[in-house]
Design a protein around this nucleic acid. Structure first.
Length: 957
RNA sequence: GCGGGAGUUGCCAAGCCUGGUCAAAGGCGCAGGGCUUAGGACCCUGUCUUUUAGGAGUUCGUGGGUUCAAAUCCCACCUCCCGCACCA
């Protein structure tokens, strides 16, 4: 057993004391890696650890490759959830406070202060930071900041003025979920039951009745061409209200909704639904009148409480019309109804003239109160929306698809003032935590970032296509998001953050004040050293430092800093920018990461645009999604205490490749811990040894090392960390095992030097992943300095010995063959005889090999050309040889084929003499080696003739 | 519906881009053996079917196709997961 925690803290202290991870400009090439900073509203758990660990491995890898790596960290205080939490603490919310106590283990005295939002952020900020330190992240902590620091506020003000000056900030109206009592927008955290308030846009079509307007809400404005009548609920009492300058008849609920949609609503009377039954209304833009019929399916809380009827395409309407025709309540109405024919306006494949009729009949619906109507409606709407085309009777919209026509009809009908818009909450009613029912409110002075700006979008597309994006599969998603983004609200009225500089009622929203902050890490160091003070900083300071604009002397004096410091800051920015790699979880692709690219493009010159984005998947806990309700969230710091930081880092990284969900499970942690402990145990055994007593297996192991370095390095460059780690932890083992088997069979004692070399390289390559234990191993190996600052191993071509690789492969495969034979025959061997192939076969092999490499593997052609040559004409005695040899060659790696072709074939007879010690050790018998045609060979079963190059014949007795 | 991803041998999961190294890595599980007072840990061997000579057969969601050769390329289909916003 080893004491992980003390080993880890020992090395962390050394890194810290020696300031290994503090990066300042130098003559070295730089690498700037950043991660999305955390929002401190809870302690971080294993899941959060993944992105940071990935970035840390990246940072450490690049550092070992000789880069001056800057890996900084900040804390994102901006946002509303913390505000909501503080409010709940003020209201003494039992559930939340209990969670603080038991789940997050927050000390009582801190909880008391949590009614103040900043205290919550401060507490979890420290908590998260401690976890990051304990995980061994190689962060330059001198550059830490929060998004409510005064200088940061100045920085965001600069950003927003910059964006506005480029016309990328615009003002407009915008619907939000809203609590009428709190006078506040509501998000998921603000509602009872944590429901996300979402809403749908309905089009109100204005029908005219005498001096009144009767609006009906619809999702399908294009069906106005198929309207035959209206539906009203005779039981409901409607309001007569003046709405802006018109007089509307709508349900009580609707009148209330309209108030929040920026309309002047005044109720001036009431009217029973039944009074309107049988009345006629005028269809907008057409001089036609239609009648109002009663229907029980019409609900006053939906839309306006009055519905337009399109019986050809709406199952509800079709069925309600049928119901009236059959009804005996009102002979007059039903006889009018009988004269009404559905007007078909949409042609859809698979449906005839009256689709609503077909669907209703197929679902066997007998009246309008049948719940199956919902299903029928859904089916038909979906089919028509994506597959339907408007018919000739829709005039200028004829031939258009429903999806297109919907938007065009909406535009057209709104323009002629025959329509309006109504927002309706989905899955209502939704209640605020205060208990009152939420509505949709139209905010009409909202500020937006104009992501629909054509030029901005185009530039972003171009850059997205040029950037390095890992994994490559996700690039398409970025392009999709860029296309799909439109205006985005960038300010809100509550929460921590920076005030909008020109409209102090608004606070810059959290996904908009976190898009270019990577540049701020340069300033943060000077802020923390107290060299920059907010009051002294104006836009000209930022313009100079980030864009190089303006007169440095003047700016130095207005900012009250020395000219030298100003220059230092600017130079430091120019040194470290652009961001070389940004890491984040994939949930930030459709928002933060895309905004990050957009905003860099808007604000900075091209040379400062980000170079690379690395996206990772999430973390599962024992195969399941982590969630509070499942109780399977493991706080990161708890996990570090029980398992150690390195095993956790590896367990997170090894379970999945970048985009996959990683499964964290204790089994894996234990396995890795053991693996590392075993490796550590090996280290003290090996000492560096300069003497050059290398035998074939030493040269072979050295060659394998070079191949592994090559594989691991290329995996690291592609951020295929699981693969790299796999090589480091496991692939090495099988090679070392073979080496030990060989040296053991030969009774060699002088193997420490080779193993020391192998282990040192291995530990080097382990160190980005498991930095603490790697230091300990490095130290136990007797190497000087820290491995974190050592150089990443490079491939030494001259250490690759093709002959050694070939020879050891031959030994392995021959030994394998012997085992196979023994397994099948189940005989216990008394003697083993090996026969190597004749020289003509070797020549034929080489010819076949070079043809195969050229792509010629047709057996007939090969045989012909071999027979034509005197050296290989023997092939005609054994034509099967060619086919088998081609298969042999095809069943080995391309590189090994090529190296064989290049270096020529080794002499098998000599090599196979080496197998004797191995066979002795394993089976306790002697091996004899003969050539296929040796005169005095022992070959009672006539096996020798089946020998092929690299496939000697074997006889076991 | 749109956009993205996935379906592999008991389970998890590589391989697919760049076809032949693939009966298909690794881990877990399971079986046998070693070590140990025992348990754990660790080490070795085995783990599709068949086979007393290193072989053969059938497999990588389903069905087609291209190719000397397909888990890998192309087409169609089925199933599952994620995102679709103003929220961090």
């Amino acid at each position: 057993m080893i004491d992980w925690l003390s080993i880890e803290s020992k090395w962390r202290k050394i890194w810290h004391d020696e300031k290994y991870f503090e990066a300042d400009p130098s003559s070295q090439k730089k690498f700037f890696v950043t991660v999305a900073y955390p929002y401190p509203n809870s302690p971080q758990h294993i899941g959060h650890g993944r992105t940071y660990t990935l970035a840390d491995v990246h940072a450490r890898f690049m550092r070992m490759r000789g880069y001056n790596v800057l890996f900084p960290m900040g804390f994102h205080y901006t946002g509303t959830p913390i505000l909501g939490m503080a409010r709940r603490v003020q209201e003494n919310d039992k559930e939340l406070i209990e969670a603080f106590r038991t789940l997050y283990k927050v000390p009582e005295k801190n909880i008391k202060e949590f009614s103040e939002p900043v205290k919550i952020a401060d507490y979890f900020h420290q908590e998260i930071k401690s976890g990051m330190i304990e995980m061994g992240y190689s962060i330059d902590w001198r550059r830490e900041f929060t998004t409510i620091d005064p200088v940061y506020n100045k920085f965001i003000e600069w950003q927003f003025r910059k964006l506005r000056s480029k016309n990328l900030v615009i003002q407009g109206s915008h619907p939000v979920g809203w609590c009428p009592k709190d006078q506040n927008p509501v998000s998921q955290h603000d509602t009872l039951g944590d429901v996300e308030p979402s809403f749908t846009e309905y089009i109100l079509i204005k029908f005219r009745y005498e001096k009144y307007i009767i609006p009906t809400a619809t999702l399908r404005p294009e069906t106005i061409f198929g309207v035959t009548n209206l539906w009203i609920n005779p039981q409901v009492t409607y309001k007569i209200a003046s709405v802006d300058n018109e007089t509307w008849i709508v349900s009580t609920e609707c009148a209330r909704k309209l108030e929040f949609l920026d309309k002047k609503v005044k109720v001036i009377g009431e009217i029973k639904g039944s009074e309107l039954v049988g009345k006629k209304v005028k269809i907008p833009d057409r001089n036609e009148e239609i009648v109002i019929f009663p229907a029980s399916f019409v609900k006053s809380e939906n839309g306006t409480g009055i519905v337009m009827s399109v019986p050809a395409h709406a199952p509800f309407d079709y069925q309600a019309l049928e119901d009236i025709k059959k009804s005996s309540d009102d002979q007059n109405l039903s006889s009018i109804a009988k004269t009404i024919l559905p007007i078909s306006i949409i042609q859809t494949d698979g449906y005839g003239e009256i689709p609503a009729k077909e669907v209703t009949e197929r679902f066997q619906i007998e009246n309008q109160n049948n719940p199956k109507l919902e299903e029928a409606t859904k089916e038909l709407y979906a089919k028509e929306f994506y597959g339907g085309k408007l018919k000739q009777n829709t005039g200028r919209f004829a031939q258009k698809t429903v999806a297109d026509a919907k938007e065009e009809v909406k535009k057209w009908i709104l323009q002629s003032n025959n329509a309006d818009i109504l927002f309706e909450l989905n899955d209502g009613p939704i209640r605020c935590r205060c208990g009152s029912e939420c509505v949709v409110k139209l905010l009409n002075n909202q500020w937006f970032l104009d992501y629909s700006n054509k030029k901005w979008k185009d530039d972003t597309h171009l850059w997205i296509n040029e950037m390095k994006i890992l994994p490559e599969e996700i690039r398409g998603e970025f392009n999709y998001v860029v296309d799909w983004l439109r205006e985005r609200a960038c300010a809100r009225q509550h929460g921590l953050g920076t005030k909008l500089p020109w409209d102090k009622d608004w606070i810059v929203e959290s996904l908009s004040d976190s898009v270019i902050y990577m540049a701020y890490y340069i300033l943060a160091k000077y802020v923390n050293e107290k060299q920059l003070v907010a009051e002294n900083l104006g836009d000209e300071f930022f313009d100079y430092v980030f864009l190089g604009d303006g007169d440095s002397k003047k700016i130095a004096s207005s900012s009250k800093i020395s000219h030298d410091i100003l220059e230092n800051i600017k130079n430091e920015f120019q040194y470290f920018y652009p961001v070389n790699a940004r890491h984040s979880g994939r949930d930030l692709v459709p928002n933060h990461l895309t905004f990050f690219v957009f905003n860099h493009i808007a604000i900075f010159p091209k040379k400062y645009w980000p170079e690379e984005i690395v996206v990772n998947g999430s973390v599962l806990m024992e195969g399941k999604k982590m969630s509070k309700s499942m109780g399977n969230i493991i706080p990161l710091r708890d996990a570090i205490r029980t398992h150690g930081a390195d095993p956790i880092r590896l367990a997170i990284l090894i379970s999945a490749e970048l985009l996959q969900d990683a499964d964290f499970n204790l089994e894996a942690v234990r396995g890795i811990k053991n693996k590392l402990e075993n490796m550590l145990g090996e280290c003290p055994k090996y000492k560096a040894d300069q003497s050059n007593n290398q035998e074939q297996e030493d040269r072979w192991l050295q060659s394998r090392l070079q191949q592994l370095i090559l594989e691991i390095t290329s995996a690291m460059e592609k951020m295929r960390l699981r693969e790299a780690l796999h090589y480091v932890l496991y692939e090495f083992d099988s090679d070392i095992q073979w080496y030990l088997k060989r040296t053991d069979a030969k009774n060699r004692k002088n193997i420490s030097g080779t193993l020391h070399e192998i282990f040192s390289a291995r530990v080097s390559m382990l160190s980005p992943f498991a930095p603490h234990i790697a230091e300990e191993m490095w130290n136990k190996l007797g190497n000087s300095g820290v491995v974190s600052k050592s150089l990443w191993p490079s491939v030494l071509e001259n250490k690759i010995d093709a002959a050694a690789l070939q020879s050891e492969n031959l030994l392995k495969s021959t030994l394998e063959d012997i085992k196979n034979i023994l397994k099948v025959t189940k005989i216990s061997p008394k003697r083993i005889i090996i026969y190597t192939s004749d020289s003509w076969k070797t020549k034929a092999y080489q010819k076949i090999l070079s043809s195969v490499i050229k792509g010629e593997m047709n057996i007939g052609i090969l045989i012909k050309s071999l027979i034509a040559d005197k050296d290989t004409e023997n092939v005609k005695m054994d034509p099967d040889f060619v086919k088998k040899t081609v298969n042999d060659i095809l069943s080995e790696p391309v590189e090994s084929r090529e190296s064989k072709a290049k270096s020529g074939l080794v002499e098998e007879k000599k090599i196979l003499l080496e197998i004797n010690s191995l066979v002795q050790k394993e089976f306790g018998v002697e091996v004899q080696v003969f050539g296929e045609s040796d005169a005095q060979k022992y070959d009672p079963k006539n096996k020798a003739r089946t020998a092929r190059p690299f496939k000697p014949a074997i006889l076991i007795e």
